[in-house]
């Protein structure tokens, strides 16, 4: 592979992948908190719509949703989104649905007595959410969010099928130009692996900060065990249905 290909296709591709990941993650986080909190709302109607949202967007395939937003939405709505934003919308909406389950689970895991103590001090429901429940629930969400973020990064590869110039699309172009498939696809996989590794490390730091902020002090980051990507302190999340958080896009 020549330096020109690297500079003109692969590097900009990496940048597009990073941007897609960050923007989609931002949207997914907003959706996750909105829908996740709505699922603990007092009103049955609000809970129903939030559950409906999660089931629909977890039930559908992220790639089909992306195609739908690309090709069908413009016909139905009469306007079209820029490809990049259509992709962010599709990724954010579907991963937000998985994130909503994480948020709901963490909120439900806060001891019920904490809510009661909030009632006893006359906090409003929103004050209880903001001051008591969320600050305790957020650090618990981070390991699951970390897994989801890696799934989301992998999911961004789907946009290459729509012609958006991310790193997967760059690989496709380089293959056409050089006809050396093994080399460029190996490099591309390694790029994703490194990005996933960086995201995981970043989230670990975030988790430590968040826990320290509420008076929990976990063991220091170990230097060993670098192979262990995912949380090691999980209570076998693999064995529960909520443990399957990603899926749909590119698990």
């Amino acid at each position: 592979m020549t330096a020109g290909l690297w500079e003109h296709w692969v590097l900009p591709g990496i940048w597009i992948t990073v941007q897609l990941t960050l923007y989609s993650a931002a949207l997914a986080t907003a959706v996750a908190f909105g829908v996740g909190m709505a699922r603990t709302h007092r009103s049955r109607l609000v809970r129903f719509f939030a559950a409906f949202y999660t089931e629909v967007f977890r039930g559908t395939s992220a790639l089909v949703l992306m195609f739908w937003i690309f090709f069908v939405l413009p016909q139905l709505a009469g306007w079209a989104l820029v490809p990049m934003w259509a992709a962010v919308l599709a990724l954010g909406l579907s991963y937000g649905a998985y994130g909503a389950e994480v948020v709901r689970g963490a909120l439900n895991a806060v001891a019920p007595a904490q809510r009661e103590a909030g009632v006893a001090l006359s906090f409003t429901p929103w004050q209880r959410m903001r001051l008591i429940l969320l600050p305790q629930a957020v650090p618990e969400m981070i390991p699951s969010f970390c897994n989801l973020l890696v799934e989301l990064l992998k999911g961004t590869a789907l946009v290459s099928l729509l012609g958006i110039g991310d790193v997967s699309f760059a690989a496709y172009l380089v293959r056409l130009a050089t006809t050396e498939s093994a080399q460029i696809y190996s490099i591309t996989l390694i790029i994703y692996f490194v990005l996933a590794f960086l995201l995981t490390r970043g989230m670990k730091v975030l988790e430590r900060r968040a826990k320290a902020g509420i008076g929990q002090f976990p063991e220091p980051l170990s230097t060993g065990g670098w192979l262990r990507f995912r949380r090691s302190d999980a209570k076998s999340p693999e064995l529960s249905s909520t443990g399957v958080t990603g899926g749909g896009a590119s698990r």
Binding site: K154, A157, A171, S186, L189, L227
Partner: peptide
């Protein structure tokens, strides 16, 4: 160790790219 590394690698990289890898590289 090799099995750990291999599975972590496959799990943390996109299925789509793996798909293209197999599709284009196996024939080579």
């Amino acid at each position: 160790w090799p099995v750990g590394l291999l599975t972590e690698f496959v799990r943390n990289t996109p299925l789509l790219v793996q798909l293209f890898f197999l599709f284009f590289v196996l024939p080579e």
